[in-house]
């Protein structure tokens, strides 16, 4: 009986500690890049959100400008519906990054420009060939 109680106490203890740990990390992540709020371009522009955000959209055709000097820095226009947003990105670009590509960028919005430090394109595990250029992409599906 006694040892049984001890076990129950121990188990409850572990669970409490873990729940505390998980919620603590959830509230105070050590790394500023640990979290990002998913917003639409509309929300970002309207509320002028300056903390770390994640945006999804299409790369506007012909908008990609790549630096001549180091080839890394790049500027492009992200389109979500009719809204457009200038995005700056300075790291190696994924192979599938090109005009019209569906991308997700993560970074900070400052003075009308979105400074992205992460840029993701369509993932291989879900490569669904489109036979007639149908747009299976739909922003409402990103996160539902």
């Amino acid at each position: 009986m006694n040892s049984n109680k001890k076990f129950i106490l121990m188990i409850t203890g572990i669970i409490t500690v873990v729940i505390f740990w998980i919620s603590w990390v959830s509230l105070n992540p050590a790394d500023e890049k640990a979290m990002a709020t998913f917003v639409s371009v509309d929300e970002l522009l309207e509320d002028n959100i300056t903390h770390r955000t994640k945006l999804g959209g299409l790369v506007k055709d012909g908008s990609i400008v790549i630096s001549e000097t180091n080839h890394l820095d790049c500027v492009f226009i992200l389109k979500e519906g009719d809204l457009e947003l200038e995005v700056k990105y300075g790291r190696t670009r994924p192979d599938l990054f090109k005009d019209g590509a569906e991308v997700i960028v993560t970074g900070l919005y400052e003075n009308g420009v979105f400074h992205a430090d992460e840029l993701q394109t369509k993932c291989a595990s879900r490569y669904e060939g489109d036979l007639r250029n149908e747009k299976s992409y739909n922003l409402s599906e990103i996160d539902s």
Binding site: V25, S26, P29, A30, D31, K33, A34, M35, A36, T37, F38, V39, K54, T106, E118, D143
Partner: peptide, 11 residues
């Protein structure tokens, strides 16, 4: 909607 990245999982 807040997404968490690798640093969160690692921590």
């Amino acid at each position: 909607k807040i997404t968490v990245g690798p640093p969160f999982f690692n921590q």
